[in-house]
Simulated assay, not measured.
Amino acid sequence: MPFFLRTAHIQRRCEQFKKNRVSTKIKAIEGSVLEGLSKTLGDTERGLSGTEIGKFLAEVQIPDWDSTNTKWRRLYNAFVEHQNKVQYSNRILKFINKSMNPARFVGKQEEFEFLRFELNKRLCFISLELTESGKFTKTNVAKTITDAEQRANRLKNKLEQRNTHPTIFQYCEAELLADNYFHTVFEATKSIAETIRNRTGLTSDGAELIDSAFSIKNPLIQINDLENDTQKSEHKGFANLIKGVFGMFRNVTAHAPKFIWEMDEIDALDILSTISLIHRKLGVKTAHNNV
C-alpha cells in the first residue's frame, strides 16, 4: 500500500477510535441517585472503609479532594466534582465495579449482598443493575420507590433462592417488599392455619384446628397413608411441628411488640423455610404470585 494511502487509512482508524470512545461515554447520574449510591458505599457499618475509598478513587482517577469529611459525603463530593467537570459517569460506575468485585468479599457474602441490593435500589433509576458477578447489566428504568424496592428486595430474593413455597409470597407481599422480618413471619404463620381451613372447611384455630385436621382416626389431611406406626408417628410429628410454629412464632408475634421480640434476617429466613416445608407437606398447589 502506498505511503499516502497508509497514512489516510491510519487517520480514518484514529477518527473511528475517537468516535467509539465518545459513544461509550455514559451520561451523568442525577444528584439524588448519586447521593443514594454514596450513602450506600459509605455506610458506617457495612460500607467501604476510609482507606478503601481513597484507594478506589485513586484507581479510577477521581480526585479525592474532601478526604477529611464523613465517608459518604467524601464520596459524594468527589463524584459530583468529577462528574460536573467531565459531564459523564464512566469513572463513577468503574469505582462501583472495583469496590464491588466479588473477589473482595470471599467469606463475606452477607456484606456483599447487602451492598449490592442497596446499590440496586438506586441504580435501577438509571436503568442499571449490579449482578452477582459485580458487573452492570441494563434493565428497565424504575419510576417509583415501590418499583425500586420490589426489584432489589433482599429477603424476597433470598427466599426465591431457597425455592420457598409460593404461598409465602402470596400472603406476605407488602411485608417482603419492606424487608419487614417481624411481620413477614407473622403473616406467613397465619397462612398455615388459613390453608388448613380452606382445605378442610373447619373454622377453628390453633391446637383445636390441628387436632381436628390431623386426627389419626378420622384425618381430614394426611401427609402419608397412615398404614403403620412409622407413618402414624410422622403424621403426629408433623401436626406437632405446626403447633410448635404457632406457639413459638405466630402467638409470640401476635402479642409482643416488635421492638421487644427482635428478629434478624437469618432467623426470618430459617423460620420461613420451616413454614415453606409445612406448605409443601400439606400438598397445597398455588400459582407463584410474583411480588
Score class of each variant (00 low, 15 high):
residue 95 F to M: 09
residue 137 T to G: 04
residue 156 K to M: 13
residue 56 F to G: 03
residue 38 S to E: 08
residue 75 L to G: 03
residue 226 L to P: 04
residue 263 M to Y: 03
residue 145 I to E: 14
residue 19 K to N: 10
residue 211 D to Y: 07
residue 163 N to A: 11
residue 182 F to Q: 08
residue 290 N to G: 10
residue 240 N to E: 13
residue 127 S to M: 04
residue 121 K to R: 09
residue 24 T to W: 07
residue 56 F to E: 12
residue 39 K to T: 13
residue 247 G to E: 11
residue 15 E to M: 14
residue 64 D to F: 04
residue 45 E to A: 13
residue 65 W to C: 09
residue 281 K to A: 09
residue 158 K to R: 15
residue 184 T to G: 03
residue 63 P to L: 12
residue 15 E to L: 14
residue 104 R to N: 15
residue 19 K to P: 03
residue 106 V to M: 02
residue 212 S to Y: 02
residue 77 N to L: 13
residue 249 F to R: 00
residue 119 L to F: 08
residue 60 V to A: 11
residue 196 I to L: 00
residue 149 E to H: 07
residue 49 S to G: 15
residue 171 Y to R: 09
residue 122 R to I: 08
residue 157 N to A: 13
residue 79 F to I: 11
residue 8 A to F: 13
residue 235 H to V: 09
residue 137 T to V: 04
residue 66 D to M: 15
residue 233 S to F: 10
residue 279 H to V: 07
residue 18 K to Y: 12
residue 219 P to V: 09
residue 134 G to C: 10
residue 147 D to R: 02
residue 18 K to C: 09
residue 172 C to M: 04
residue 129 E to S: 03
residue 183 H to N: 07
residue 167 T to P: 00
residue 20 N to E: 15
residue 71 K to L: 08
residue 217 K to L: 05
residue 250 R to F: 01
residue 66 D to W: 14
residue 92 I to V: 12
residue 185 V to C: 13
residue 132 E to A: 06
residue 113 E to K: 12
residue 51 T to K: 14
residue 208 E to R: 02
residue 148 A to T: 06
residue 155 L to C: 11
residue 156 K to Y: 10
residue 87 Q to I: 11
residue 53 I to W: 02
residue 201 G to V: 12
residue 282 L to T: 01
residue 60 V to S: 09
residue 240 N to F: 13
residue 160 E to R: 11
residue 38 S to V: 11
residue 135 K to H: 12
residue 268 A to W: 06
residue 16 Q to K: 15
residue 108 K to V: 05
residue 103 A to P: 01
residue 80 V to L: 09
residue 6 R to L: 15
residue 95 F to P: 13
residue 119 L to Y: 06
residue 181 Y to N: 08
residue 31 G to W: 07
residue 287 A to K: 12
residue 224 N to F: 08
residue 65 W to H: 10
residue 19 K to M: 10
residue 202 L to C: 06
residue 131 T to R: 05
residue 266 I to S: 12
residue 20 N to C: 10
residue 187 E to V: 01
residue 155 L to V: 14
residue 204 S to K: 08
residue 26 I to E: 10
residue 127 S to F: 03
residue 282 L to K: 02
residue 159 L to G: 04
residue 287 A to S: 11
residue 139 T to E: 03
residue 279 H to Y: 06
